[in-house]
Amino acid sequence: MSKIHVTTTVNGDAVDFLADPRETLLDCLRDHLGLTGSKEGCGTGDCGACSVRLDGVLVSSCLVLGVEAEGRSIETIEGMASPDGTLHPLQRKFIEHAALQCGFCTPGILVAAKALLEENPDPSESEIRYWLAGNLCRCTGYDKIIRAVQDAAAELRGAA
């Protein structure tokens, strides 16, 4: 099986890798680039644990082929905190509200929530729940996640 050379941008850095055309973007991030923050919960678009931004659009990276990333720009959970390690307000609020237990869903939910707050800085509870309907969490019961997103949204609005 011949591999394809892919050049793309991940969290602002130019990167390249060799991909089998059947490999998903999630496989390529994890196995070729060592970015293991994005998780595979299902591999079929149902759980959102693999959420990333592709040219700014929130997608499930298990439903994107690695070869499709050629020339695109990708943001993953690894790019969320500042380079000096300062956490994004969403990350901080998730810790403060104990919005995670095992943490497997957390990277995907953080990436998805950040995309929401950029589009809608003041979402209602039901808007948050619908936006995150494709992010499954088997531990928390979602309530603390919603509170953490609301609190982070309020802080971000205040800071703006």
Partner: peptide, 9 residues
């Protein structure tokens, strides 16, 4: 159709 993530594609 699908979630926010699916809607993006």
């Amino acid at each position: 159709v699908g979630s926010t993530q699916v809607q993006g594609r």
